[in-house]
Design a protein around this nucleic acid. Sequence first.
DNA 1: CATGAATGAGCTTTCATTCAT
DNA 2: AATGAATGAAAGCTCATTCAT
Lengths: 204, 204, 204, 204
Amino acid sequence: MKDENKRHKILQAAIKVFSEKGFYNSRVSEIAKEANVADGTIYLYFRNKDDILISLFEEEFGKIVKNMRAALEKDPDPLKKIRRFAMTHLSIVSKQQELGEVMGVEVRQSSKFMKEYINKPFIEYLNIIRSVVIEGQEKGLIRKDLTPGIMKRAFFGALDEMARYWVLSTQKKHSIDDAALQISDVFIRGMMSEEARENYPWPP
Amino acid sequence: MKDENKRHKILQAAIKVFSEKGFYNSRVSEIAKEANVADGTIYLYFRNKDDILISLFEEEFGKIVKNMRAALEKDPDPLKKIRRFAMTHLSIVSKQQELGEVMGVEVRQSSKFMKEYINKPFIEYLNIIRSVVIEGQEKGLIRKDLTPGIMKRAFFGALDEMARYWVLSTQKKHSIDDAALQISDVFIRGMMSEEARENYPWPP
Amino acid sequence: MKDENKRHKILQAAIKVFSEKGFYNSRVSEIAKEANVADGTIYLYFRNKDDILISLFEEEFGKIVKNMRAALEKDPDPLKKIRRFAMTHLSIVSKQQELGEVMGVEVRQSSKFMKEYINKPFIEYLNIIRSVVIEGQEKGLIRKDLTPGIMKRAFFGALDEMARYWVLSTQKKHSIDDAALQISDVFIRGMMSEEARENYPWPP
Amino acid sequence: MKDENKRHKILQAAIKVFSEKGFYNSRVSEIAKEANVADGTIYLYFRNKDDILISLFEEEFGKIVKNMRAALEKDPDPLKKIRRFAMTHLSIVSKQQELGEVMGVEVRQSSKFMKEYINKPFIEYLNIIRSVVIEGQEKGLIRKDLTPGIMKRAFFGALDEMARYWVLSTQKKHSIDDAALQISDVFIRGMMSEEARENYPWPP
DNA sequence: CATGAATGAGCTTTCATTCAT
DNA sequence: AATGAATGAAAGCTCATTCAT
């Protein structure tokens, strides 16, 4: 198993095939064909079909988590971080549509057993939002009566549903950036503390 | 009618089985067993396995849409309608956990062909939110720079992600009502127009 | 699973196919074809391919054990029982050549796990010989310094090797009855006690 | 010779692996691993997997035949030769358990095509017994009404079944030497001519 | 209308064998 | 000569669907 490159080729092929047909309607042989390898070769790099999806999440989602963290470091302001999260998230999805499709569509489908595996990086991703919310609360910018654990899911859910729509719809009605701005704007205003609203008006 | 009753029994069985194992990991024979009918009987009422899921959505979702419309009519105030939507949505999900699970988990998984069928009642459901947002904008309560089509998805997505978490998690950390209140509160404050904020303070 | 007859048909087909190609070189689809059923039908009656072989042994060998016991009851004399065992054994094998082939050839090949299952009726069969030897010893006809557990295997092995040769060879050099007589004769004379040799001359 | 040495290493590995799992449940890659060579290397020394087993028999069985012949030469007396055959056979099996296991278990399993190859040295081995029987008959020690071809199979079968039991059973009930003595003793007494019994009493 | 045994297409996965290095 | 990654044919098994009863 010299060829780390081949593993990557298979994962890329899997993203494409899964995004087109969904996990359960995808055939291992289609992935092999798309990756220009023999069916058997897949099994040199992955234990089984499930393992392809799991690896996809662990590795690709891992990268995304890393990139997101890097993107947010630029902004010291938690409120701006929220906006940036939205922009970055939807930009990732729009740039890697197929990956986005697999993420958004497939995360929820697999058997509950698989969900455990998949959830790890996913929860990590969600917790980026949670950290920002907590940071905002500590700095007095976000209302303390809001539960960070609820906010992280609400915000992610809002973006994710939007992304799914955008990715699946053939004619893109709304600009994806516009959606990111509107959604983050609503969340920021909605979560802002009273003091912040006076001293630190939004939009900046 | 004996007929209609058996069809219903099958659909109820399908909800249970799909919610436990997911569509692709459910066997037609399991649904038959759960419904206390023979495998073949299923095919007297449904064209095929896909048709069971499609019918599930059309019929069960249809009821939900109807109930939601009825629930919102009680409130003339668009902002309160938003809160009520959240409360009702999460209450439906928590009361009919299995159906909620199927809705949340399965809507997104099936082949794109099926999605079209499933989408119809789903879009209708989303458009309830859209109408409320438009109504709010017309009454000057909601900012006019927000796109109703984006808001409907963002709000639904926020609630849905929360519902999914709540439904799948074994130990329910957050009260589902609390989540509904916080999420709707953030959206209402976030979407409110400047004038409304002065004349019509939130929470009421 | 109404049709007990169909199960039997499959087992008969399996005997034929296994005897021709050996267990590992037999295809489930070949058995299905030979039995005039669909591939899937096999799995309504048997858990898997292994289960076919296991069932074959449990059921067919069971019958043989029963028949052998019945055959031996006719003779009160242990020495004559030994001869009859040989005659009956080789006659079973020669009449049901294919079954004999599967028995002789396949018993020893399967994984050690399977062997346990298969061994049960086999040991039972061997123990028929053991009982006869013990009976002979009690009656003073067979030397007491011979271990019944060794004799049972030696005698069975002698017959079995002969049967295997006879079954596999295309041109049958030796008459199978002649072989049965010679082998049992050698064992009887060889195991006889000194007193028996005087009072109870062999052949009778 | 480096070459011949590697070939030998592979055969030794094959004996080990085949004896543990059986031919069909053994993987070529396992043999390669056990022999510390690459998978592909095996195919420099053997045509295919079947060829490994065939070579095993031809070469290892060949040695055994040679050793057995040498062992028997020490005894001029055919009856003693029979006893020595039993002792030597079971001692070989007990000393080279793994090889014995492969011999006993695998000889009979492979496809009929393979059997032809395997049978050659096997028949040769059997014919050692045959020669002894004939020699015994010529010297008037063994009854002339016994067919040497039947006796060779019966005697070998008796020993082989014992060996198989001894090799496969984890707790060895019977001493292997004791078994060899008892079995050969029964055969010798059983085959002895009347005159020999008087002039040449057994045991010597 | 209802049944459930039977079907067989089609899937994932394995593994003996090859061949570029 | 030696390697071991790559191959792809082939097999066991599943399960949606049918249809004789």
